[in-house]
Amino acid sequence: MATQQSRSAARLMMAPAVVLLLGWMLIPLTMTLWFSFRRYLPLRGGDLGWTGFDNYVRFFTSSAFWPSVQTTLILVGGVLVITVVLGILLALLLDQPMWGQGAVRVLVIAPFFVMPTVSALVWKNMFMDPVNGLFSHLWRAVGAEPVAFLSDVPLGSLIVIISWQWLPFATLILLTAVQSLDNEQMEAAEMDGASVLSRFRHLVLPHLSRAITIVILIQTIFLLSIFAEIFVTTGGAFDTRTLTYLIYQRVLESQNVGLGSAGGVYAIILANIVAIFLMRIVGKNLDR
């Protein structure tokens, strides 16, 4: 349908978005790369010249690096497992006929709209506080000793908070996928004598696999850069320092920009590995 005239108009209309995003990507990225090869301490002498790969080596070999990678993996992995498994179960449940389906959906989705700082603070103070938190009341009610969640099981507590925030997202997307499942296919399987479990395993799960993959990939990208939840709960203490948080501390707290930038480059590479898989799926979808 395109004629020459409409094509040049199209290019013109795309230009602002493309130019802006190009600038947004290239300028800071180039600067981060530049800093990562320099010894740059804004409060202690400023830019002290080239250091080659020194920052990369130092970031990689620092005692904080591997624990932060481990924390990141546990956090991301834990949230993914919880949200995907519960998300599938919840999606299947919400798909069943019931009274007030719309209202239940609204209840389930709500946490996604709560801003991260609010949900972190509410959980931290009103639920997980060892003295006045709701959980400590509950613990005492059954005669148990209240737990100081955020200092005794900090990472587990964070996983709970973040899973609560992301479960709606997983549920919503999986529910959309469940609803597109072919009813006749299910009936055919029932006619063929497939049990509920084998129908789930051989029909539902394969049907959901694409949606599950997308949930995992998108959540991974967001979870890798989780910040506010850690910032307002533990501030990175008690082994909750993820890679993102470590970089943040290097850059803004200890003002070692060169070192932090090298860490940033690592984070960018990590995110891109995940992104490539996501883009493949999304790209395939575009060809239709």
Partner: peptide
């Protein structure tokens, strides 16, 4: 997908 922390400074 660019991690924000990578370009913070």
């Amino acid at each position: 997908m660019l991690p924000a922390v990578g370009v913070l400074y």
